[in-house]
Nucleic acid binder design. Structure first.
Length: 516
RNA sequence: GGGCCUGUAGCUCAGCUGGUUAGAGCAGUCCGCUCAUAACGGAUUGGUCGGCGGUUCAAGUCCGCCCGGGCCUACCA
């Protein structure tokens, strides 16, 4: 495998105590689009997702359900596999932190960090609320009536100390700043990078990385009282899936360091600060980039369980369709910003961009070919300047799209693709093949040929975003399986190939309430 | 409290290092076309660029203040 041709992309591992929601779907979708694009562009891609299955909450939930934690996580982890299937995600692996391979990786990196002196045994002291089973920082507390301290939740807290292993995060401050400085693209988008920078500049404290108060986790090597706590365990999954601790393994050589960790903005710090610190300490190469995307609101409202307005991606798929949902999520909001999911906006995108613009373009062109060219791709004559302009634009769209995808500017990539769609529709109008049918049949054929081939390119361009719909388009165009990647972009349709009667690709959404 | 970002047409947003009559998409209005999923194309209405003051030959674009909105400020995934 030649260097540089490998691409390793990861989603966070999702905490199984949650039900899959739009946020999970969104993160993975972005990775899926990227993974599919890179595959079509000839890369050897490894796309990883999975579930985070350790922790006190999981232990408790299992207990409440009256089953052992492993059984419990087997069940809930399945929800995330189901989501991946329903969303048509093309992940190459699905990791679970309860797997043996992961335990090995965690303990290996732990041992390494002990060896380098970056993990030491100390005591974790803090204000603990028994009721909440959580520690609070000094600044979060308010003074209670009798001089005692009260947590923001209203629970009483007490000063508690427990033995804990610590990671020497404080020792890595300068190295981290150096990293950000010399790799300006390590954290994206820019605004998030600024936040991380100011956070690190504010000084770093050592990080507690073990717990003794519960047992559902990876055991700390040589100390049965402790389990590894949260982030060291969770983050290490990215290494596990590449084959760590066997750094000589082919998969590790191919895919580590990761090309991109995609995360939600809430967990950026763990990926942009703790993770590179762990890796530097363990003398393991760093991932190339961490991208933090934003959150969705629901019809302008903040989404929360208590409000009961959580968006279930399965509901969206059922209501609007899979590819329509995928398109909306990638198109509606500048990737990196927060966005709003609104029914009206969804229907707008679905009907305007998909049904009217690209769907209808495909339909009108293929229908004309089917009816006026003996149901086969026509012969073509010399190309006019107008023909060449459209063809050139379609060719350049791949270059633009590739560039934008590499920046995770999914919305702009789609915008660039749709610029071609618009141009193609204008070209249809300007050339008016229905008029040429009566005056210059050869010219009509050339026009329809140019259009059909443009649609083929559009089909390839939208394929990472809407794989099923794109394949339907490419089916209509009789494009063979092995011509459905970007190496085939410059190929052309063969005149004389027979086509089927075209069928619509993107249906319009009709509001049911409109009839009532 | 400290730090960062942001306020541009009805809506969502572009406007790089200051420089011609401030742009796009959607919505609205008018016109054209009739191949097509009544879809497509053209034209057009609409903005004191949050407010006040300043720097400058020139500010949406820089500075100060004020008003409004958001985010970060460590061990909860």
């Amino acid at each position: 495998m030649s260097a540089g041709q490998n691409f390793y992309i990861t989603t966070p591992i999702y905490y199984v105590n949650d039900k899959p929601h739009i946020g999970h779907a969104y993160t993975s979708l972005a990775c899926d689009v990227l993974a599919r694009f890179k595959r079509m562009d000839g890369y050897n891609v490894h796309f990883l997702t999975g579930t985070d299955e350790h922790g006190q909450k999981v232990e408790q939930s299992a207990e409440k359900a009256g089953i052992d934690p492993q059984k419990f996580t087997d069940n809930v982890s399945q929800n995330f596999r189901d989501l991946a299937k329903a969303m048509n995600f093309s992940n190459d692996d699905f990791i679970r932190t309860t797997e043996e391979r992961h335990k090995e990786a965690c303990q290996a990196i732990w041992n390494k960090l002990v060896e380098t002196g970056d993990i030491y045994l100390g005591a974790y002291a803090g204000w603990y609320a028994i009721r909440d089973e959580a520690f609070y920082t000094e600044t979060e507390l308010v003074d209670g009536p009798n001089g005692n301290k009260i947590a923001p939740t209203g629970a009483e807290v007490e000063w508690l100390e427990e033995p804990s292993y610590f990671f020497k995060l404080s020792a890595w401050e300068d190295k981290l700043l150096e990293l950000y400085e010399s790799n300006p693209d390590f954290i994206a988008p820019k605004s998030r990078r600024n936040e991380v920078l100011s956070f690190v500049k504010g000084g770093l404290k050592d990080l507690s990385v073990s717990r003794t108060t519960f047992s559902w986790g990876v055991p700390v090597p040589n100390d049965d009282d402790h389990i590894m706590y949260v982030w060291l365990d969770a983050l290490t999954n990215y290494l596990t899936a590449a084959g760590y601790p066997d750094m000589e393994k082919q998969s590790f050589k191919d895919f580590w360091p990761a090309s991109l960790h995609m995360v939600g903005k809430d967990i950026l710090r763990f990926h942009a600060v703790y993770w590179p610190a762990f890796l530097m300490a363990a003398d393991i190469p760093l991932p190339e980039r961490v991208f933090a995307h934003g959150w969705w609101t629901n019809e302008g409202q903040k989404i929360s369980k208590s409000l009961g307005n959580v968006i279930d991606p399965l509901d969206l798929i059922e209501k609007y369709g899979l590819d329509q949902t995928r398109y909306f999520l990638m198109r509606e909001v500048p990737f990196g910003n927060d966005g709003d999911f609104a029914h009206e906006a969804m229907v707008g995108r679905m009907n305007t961009d998909l049904a009217n613009d690209i769907g209808n373009l495909c339909q009108r062109v293929m229908s004309m070919i089917f009816k006026n060219c003996d149901a086969q791709f026509p012969e073509f004559g010399d190309f006019t300047d107008e023909d060449k302009a459209l063809m050139t634009m379609a060719d350049e769209a791949l270059v633009k799209t590739r560039d934008l995808i590499n920046q995770q500017s999914f919305h702009k990539a789609l915008e660039a693709i749709w610029a071609v769609v618009g141009e193609a529709n204008r070209y249809v109008d300007a050339q008016a093949p229905w008029a040429l049918r009566k005056t210059d049949i050869d010219r009509m054929k050339t026009v329809l040929y140019v259009l059909a081939d443009t649609i083929r390119k559009l089909g390839l361009l939208i394929r990472p975003f809407m794989p099923e719909s794109a394949d339907k388009m490419l089916d209509l165009l009789q494009v063979s399986e092995n011509s459905r990647d970007f190496s085939a972009y410059g190929e052309v349709l063969k005149s004389g190939v027979a086509i089927e009667k075209p069928v619509g690709i993107f249906p319009r959404f009709v509001d049911e309430e409109a009839d009532a």
